Amino acid sequence: MTIPRNVRSNLGIVPGSEVEFVLQGDSAVLRRVEPAADERERAVQDLVEHLRRHKGSMALGDLDGDAFYSLLRD
């Protein structure tokens, strides 16, 4: 859906913003959804979910886990 520039500007809608439509009678009102109070917690949860989905899927070539972690620490 395309939101007109003046509407985006007035509502502070930028790429990645979340919006919602609220029904009021026979009309719909577009609103920008305020970011969660703890945006960092949400980001951490997203990362943890991502890591769980991809657990065990990284190709390390000839490295075993210990050698890989050693590279990360050095």
Rank of each mutant, 00 (worst) to 15 (best):
M1S: 04
T2E: 07
T2V: 00
I3T: 08
I3V: 14
P4C: 00
P4M: 00
P4D: 02
R5P: 13
V7A: 08
V7I: 15
R8G: 00
S9F: 04
N10V: 12
N10K: 15
L11W: 04
I13S: 01
I13C: 01
V14M: 13
V14I: 13
V14W: 13
V14K: 13
P15L: 02
P15S: 03
S17W: 09
E18T: 05
E18L: 06
V19W: 00
F21K: 03
V22L: 06
V22Y: 00
L23C: 04
L23A: 08
L23R: 02
Q24T: 07
Q24L: 11
Q24N: 12
G25W: 03
G25R: 01
G25L: 02
S27G: 12
A28D: 11
A28N: 11
V29W: 12
L30M: 12
L30Q: 13
R31P: 03
R31E: 02
V33L: 10
V33C: 13
E34D: 12
E34F: 09
E34Q: 12
P35Q: 05
A37E: 07
A37W: 02
D38K: 05
R40I: 13
R40T: 11
E41S: 10
R42F: 08
A43Q: 14
Q45G: 07
Q45F: 09
D46E: 14
D46N: 11
D46Q: 14
L47P: 01
L47N: 08
V48I: 09
H50K: 14
H50A: 11
H50M: 10
L51T: 06
L51M: 12
R53W: 07
H54C: 09
K55M: 10
S57N: 08
M58F: 14
L60Q: 09
L60S: 11
G61D: 03
G61W: 05
D64L: 08
G65E: 13
G65R: 14
D66H: 12
A67P: 00
F68K: 06
Y69R: 10
S70M: 10
S70V: 08
S70R: 14
L72Y: 00
R73W: 01
